[in-house]
């Protein structure tokens, strides 16, 4: 595994992916060897870095992508970067997704800006999986849906899409299509990333059978396990304990976590 380092990387391209969503591609051979689900801590003006997952990892071209939604000053500053600018990045950080089991049906479930790390997982491992591969992408509305074309270019059958307002795909959340998929593939493997309530629901659904890996978000300080800011409640050998999203995660097995 690549050990984390602080380095500057050049932005080789910048794309507007949807309303308020920007993807930056970095020329970063070291980061490109990271594991999907890992993240970087990006320097922006202000006291703390900003955690962003890899949206793409291309070790052959030596490129890594970061796709983010503009939600505040840090991401607004990032969205203002242009091709040729340099980013100061700490990473790769955390534990990514495991390699999927080849013969288990695989479903990638992304909500909003939770979609990008699943795309990185898909492109890294789709050739390893001989069982079926499906994707379920959810967003607030059509304007905010990201990476549908990227997924479409990799998966040769329809991708389930849901939006809160029904402006594209089925109205509702990713849970509807996922329940469907789970009924057809009870022993399948689910990789999910998105808002906490969505992940909690995915964990509940997958309790009966199959396996689920969830990529979590939490407010962070250091990003390397030193400050204990980014904790989530998990099951320990002697009862509940806090685990660090930045160091023990961001990817956890669903049954490791305790949902309040």
């Amino acid at each position: 595994m690549e050990s984390p380092r602080v380095s500057r990387y050049r932005i080789v391209s910048r794309m507007e992916k949807a309303k308020d969503h920007v993807e930056l591609i970095l020329e970063a051979p070291v980061l490109a060897r990271a594991v999907p689900g890992q993240f970087v801590h990006v320097r922006t003006p202000g006291t703390l870095r900003r955690p962003i997952s890899f949206s793409r990892l291309n070790p052959v071209r030596g490129e890594a992508g970061l796709l983010f939604q503009v939600v505040g000053p840090g991401t607004a500053w990032l969205a203002g970067r242009e091709q040729g600018d340099w980013l100061d990045v700490l990473g790769p950080l955390g534990q990514g997704f495991p390699r999927p089991e080849p013969d288990r049906p695989w479903c990638l479930v992304g909500g909003g800006v939770g979609i990008p790390p699943l795309y990185a997982a898909l492109t890294a491992w789709q050739n390893d999986v001989t069982a079926s591969i499906d994707a379920i992408l959810g967003a607030r509305s059509q304007d905010y849906l990201i990476m549908l074309e990227d997924f479409g270019a990799q998966i040769d059958h329809p991708i389930a899409v849901t939006t809160d307002d029904g402006s594209v795909g089925a109205q509702g959340t990713v849970l509807g299509p996922l329940a469907h998929w789970h009924a057809r593939h009870p022993t399948g493997q689910v990789y999910a990333c998105g808002p906490m309530p969505m992940l909690a629901a995915v964990a509940r659904l997958m309790q009966t059978s199959g396996v689920a890996y969830l990529a979590l978000e939490q407010r962070m300080g250091c990003g390397v396990g030193a400050c204990l800011a980014c904790v989530v409640m998990a099951n320990g050998p002697e009862g509940p304990l806090w685990r660090r999203v930045c160091h023990d995660g961001p990817v956890f097995r669903a049954e490791e976590l305790i949902w309040s």
């Binding site: 202000g46 006291t47 407010r219 300080g221 904790v231 989530v232």
Partner: peptide, 8 residues
């Protein structure tokens, strides 16, 4: 309980 940090 989290959140445990907040930028100011």
């Amino acid at each position: 309980p989290p959140p445990r940090v907040w930028e100011t």
